[in-house]
Design a protein around this nucleic acid. Structure first.
Length: 415
DNA sequence: TCTGGGGTCCTAGGACCC
DNA sequence: TCTGGGGTCCTAGGACCC
């Protein structure tokens, strides 16, 4: 019998909300939302009212007047997510963790040990239910893309196994927005061409799809619509960028607002890089204005950086450039710093001086080296005594919009 | 009545090189 | 006799994902 790949996609249901209902039995069966200003997760009881993740809290309350906002057990989310994924790991080491609550597994090589993919999926669901006490949905198919669609269709708390013999029949009846890579904009563009199902997309000539959506996306969607998904389960890949952002509400675009916020963001990004001995050559700053339009300014340096103060200074220059290009904007609502072009060895940054905006900076000089050494010693003290003890001025990001660091860490990817 | 935070990938235009 | 062609890198913006 021919070897057919068996990919499994496991996805915890309404994850943060389910953990809250697990921790507090009085919340079970009730519409709840994790978050505040914005809904991070909604229980199925809340989803029945139309409440969705990413929705403003105010709107969620309008849709569901009895909605209860809870949350804050961020450490527990990480713990339960890990426990559930570890159950999957018992069936194969070939695991690709997508996020805190979701993973792909290639179980092709585990069949002789644990039975058919369907039996493995059933065991996984039962064990997560028994041992972690959380609902998890699983999709099983020949490719990652189809397995993921399977788990979406299976929700809540279900299992969908897609037989390779009938996979296109299954796929082609489904709406295009279930495909990976089709969001609101692409969905709308397709709808304008009369394409609503994956089957209709499959029958659309590749050429017109590429004209409509661009070369890469058009080509990829055609392939996925025929279930040609070349992607393997990747057990570990390195991050290509590191970033941090902070929503500010509505603040005047002044040095008193911008300076401290950028130093705080630079500290988050740079200390994460140093922890993993990485540094990056491209620094990007993002400014969002009061009306939510956002712009970015970036610079690529001749040598990588990971020193907090240097990163902060570069970001301040970039934000100044961005604001100078928009002199009519007097209020900002978000600042962000990203570093990309990541390289392996942070010590590299000591080697070269470089210029920015005609003004020379010298990370390679004694001053640059001193900053790097200072950062390293701050890192070491924090390692020992905790992050709060040594701060680059712990910034008053006291806004209700600002989110606890413990939550931020849930979203961080391995560098 | 304006929505958090951390990521990936793609596109288009321009600079620069051969 | 107004102009070829390919490649790489950088910048800015945008769509999308969890």
């Amino acid at each position: 019998m021919a070897e057919t790949a068996a990919i499994l996609h496991a996805d915890l249901d309404a994850f943060y909300a389910s953990v809250e209902q697990l921790l507090d039995p009085s919340l079970r069966g009730k519409p709840i939302a994790v978050g505040g200003g914005v809904v991070l997760a909604a229980s199925y009881e809340a989803k029945a009212y139309g409440v969705r993740g990413g929705m403003p809290g105010r709107k969620a309350r309008e849709l569901c007047p009895h909605l209860e906002f809870v949350g804050g057990n961020f450490k527990r989310y990480q713990e339960f997510g890990d426990k559930a994924i570890d159950v999957v790991r018992d069936f194969t080491p070939l695991i690709e963790r997508i996020s805190i609550d979701e993973a792909f597994a290639d179980v092709s090589g585990s069949i002789h040990l644990f039975g058919t993919p369907q039996e493995m999926a059933e065991k996984i669901r039962a064990r997560v239910r028994d041992e972690v006490d959380l609902p998890i949905s699983v999709g099983v198919a020949r490719t990652k893309h189809l397995a993921k669609i399977g788990s979406q269709v299976a929700k809540p708390d279900g299992l969908v196994v897609i037989d390779p013999a009938t996979e296109l029949e299954f796929l082609h009846d489904l709406p295009v927005e279930l495909m990976w890579g089709v969001g609101p904009v692409t969905k709308e563009r397709l709808a304008e061409s009369g394409v609503q199902t994956i089957g209709q997309l499959a029958e659309t000539p590749g050429r017109s799809l590429e004209r409509l959506l661009g070369r890469a996306i058009g080509g990829r969607l055609t392939a996925l619509a025929w279930n040609h998904d070349p992607r393997d389960v990747e057990t570990h890949h390195r991050a290509r960028s590191v970033s941090a952002q902070s929503a500010l509400g509505r603040k005047p675009a002044t040095e008193e607002v911008i300076g401290p916020a950028l130093r705080h963001l630079a500290d988050r990004v740079a200390s994460r890089m140093r922890k993993k001995n990485r540094a990056g050559r491209t620094v990007t700053a993002r400014v969002r204005f009061a009306d939510l339009r956002a712009i970015t300014r970036s610079v690529t340096l001749p040598a990588p950086v990971s020193a907090t103060v240097i990163l902060a200074e570069i970001a301040e220059d970039l934000v100044a450039t961005a604001l100078a290009d928009h002199p009519d904007e007097s209020e900002i609502s978000l600042l962000a710093i990203a570093v990309s072009h990541l390289e392996e060895d942070a010590a590299l940054q000591l080697e070269l001086p470089f210029e920015l905006d005609g003004e020379e900076r010298r990370p390679g000089t004694e001053k640059g080296a001193a900053r790097w050494v200072l950062d390293r010693s701050v890192d070491a003290v924090r390692e020992k005594f905790g992050r709060e003890l040594v701060g680059y001025g712990s910034v008053a990001l006291d806004d209700r919009r600002s989110v606890p660091d413990a939550f931020r860490e849930l979203a961080e990817k391995e560098l």
